[in-house]
């Protein structure tokens, strides 16, 4: 089937099989910043924003989100113009292998939109769907707090 997806602000018309997951449609069309870690909605490496809310793209059938707005981590910033959340993750030492990072950053973005001053418990709840095996989450928690400060300063 064919459908339009609004990915990182651009309308994209994409041909895809009706049983395809959003994760596959994104990855097969070059959005490989969306990572596949488990395909069962448990690891969060594939988290994207769907109409502003974080979802596991592996748990979304692509056909059901045609015409909807999807934002991946590359929709937030680039290496030349990084988003303050991305900078915060770098500065806090929250990026080790970096495989979970795009999902973590998306979840952080959604959290800070809703709650610019998160407490520890808010952070833990917002990032509960993103597994990380490298950091033990200590620096990630720090990064979210640092991001909160940066985002407020930048007004993003």
């Amino acid at each position: 089937m064919r459908g339009v997806f609004i990915i990182n602000g651009q309308r994209k018309e994409i041909e895809f099989a009706p049983h395809k997951r959003l994760l596959d449609v994104l990855r097969e069309n070059g959005y490989t910043e969306v990572k596949e870690g488990c395909r069962e909605g448990e690891c969060g490496a594939c988290v994207v924003l769907l109409d502003g809310k974080p979802v596991n793209s592996c748990q979304v059938l692509a056909a059901s989100v045609m015409e909807k707005e999807i934002i991946t981590v590359r929709g937030l910033g680039t290496i030349h113009k990084p988003h303050p959340i991305e900078e915060a993750f770098v500065e806090a030492g929250a990026v080790q292998c970096g495989f979970c990072t795009p999902g973590m950053i998306i979840s952080t973005y959604a959290l800070l939109k809703e709650n610019p001053d998160p407490e520890d418990d808010d952070i833990k709840r917002a990032l509960d769907g993103n597994l990380c095996r490298c950091t033990g989450y200590v620096k990630i928690t720090k990064a979210v707090k640092l991001a909160s400060k940066k985002v407020k300063k930048d007004g993003k």
Binding site: T32, V73, I79, H83, F89, V90, T101
Partner: peptide, 19 residues
């Protein structure tokens, strides 16, 4: 010092094997 590959990873620029 900031990890030299961290920003590339955080912005999703990096291609991993499966990509």
């Amino acid at each position: 010092i900031k990890k030299i590959d961290a920003l590339a990873l955080a912005t999703g620029e990096v291609k991993f094997t499966a990509d």
